[in-house]
Design a protein around this nucleic acid. Structure first.
Lengths: 164, 164
DNA sequence: TTTACTGCAAATTCTTTGCAACAAC
DNA sequence: GTTGTTGCAAAGAATTTGCAGTAAA
């Protein structure tokens, strides 16, 4: 199964660097890979605290997240204003994100043709890709509609006050 | 000139929201648009402190950066490990980034065909794009070569120790 | 055994906020 | 004048680090 392969790869990664496979690291790794949600360090820490298993401190969560990032097992994704979230990397199946500014929802999309063009751009520059993040920020269908309505109202009252 | 158009647009943005055009906001705006580099809030604050002009406090830098972000004048770009950097948005000419994990260099690339496919994906989901960030993380030509060499050395010593 | 790991709490770093004086409009 | 803005310093988050005890390999 794929999960085992990734786990093996993580173990190999640790061995290569003379790092140890501890219950904490193992738990953090498993938890990160058991969800398809995006999570922040704090969120992950909360999950681990609520569920049972070997105790994991916040410091260890941060330290391990750093390792997973270096190893390319997870990647970080900037969701606007300061908040950093992570998601695990599942082999080569990338997906890209649409982040709604209004409701915060993250939709995912994927287009092979974009991937291909991307690979081409890399080849041209001699760049070796480890991971990629493609993020579109804007408004989802629902919020866009709402925004359009509010916008219209705003313009109306603005032109009432001072013919803009 | 384009710069003036963007400036006007910023002024309009402020007016629409009943915000005032202060020397501080003006200075921050100008500084952000006078560079093509990527900068963090702290970096921008440093620039402003060293160069002369109306005094701007750190708090105001953060507050104004927030405004510029909301207005879509700048966008934030996640360069891995926690550091948030910004860059100004120059009309509709987007560019995407390749961030080197080893040396930190950020190369830019652009492909109209990718933009088109992206627009298509948005149309399909009814998503209205405000800005986009397309980021490839990996190794630039120079660092990739170096990494390959080190990697080989590592593998060699690893298999010496324990025939993996 | 040896070397690395963990939890804790203190230290940093980054960012936000309350407030009184001040400045656009 | 009215309303929003600024700087400051304190408050809050988020993340890192030193250290002594603990546990993989």
């Amino acid at each position: 199964m794929k999960h085992d392969a990734i786990r093996k790869s993580f173990e190999r990664f640790l061995r290569t660097r003379d790092l140890k496979l501890t219950p904490q690291r193992s738990r953090i790794f498993e938890r990160a890979f058991s969800t398809h949600e995006h999570f922040s360090a704090e969120t992950l820490y909360d999950w681990l605290r609520k569920e049972d298993g070997p105790k994991v401190s916040r410091a260890t969560v941060y330290r391990t997240l750093g390792l997973l990032l270096e190893g390319g097992f997870i990647q970080s994704l900037d969701v606007g204003r300061g908040e950093l979230v992570y998601e695990h990397v599942t082999g080569h199946e990338h997906h890209d994100h649409m982040v709604c500014l209004a409701c915060g929802k993250i939709e995912e999309f994927h287009d092979e043709r974009i991937e291909a063009l991307q690979a081409e751009a890399c080849a041209k520059k001699g760049f070796v890709v480890v991971s990629h993040a493609h993020r579109l920020v804007g408004y989802c269908r629902g919020c866009a509609r709402k925004a359009r309505i509010e916008d219209a109202a705003e313009k109306r009252s603005a032109s009432d006050a001072a013919a803009e």
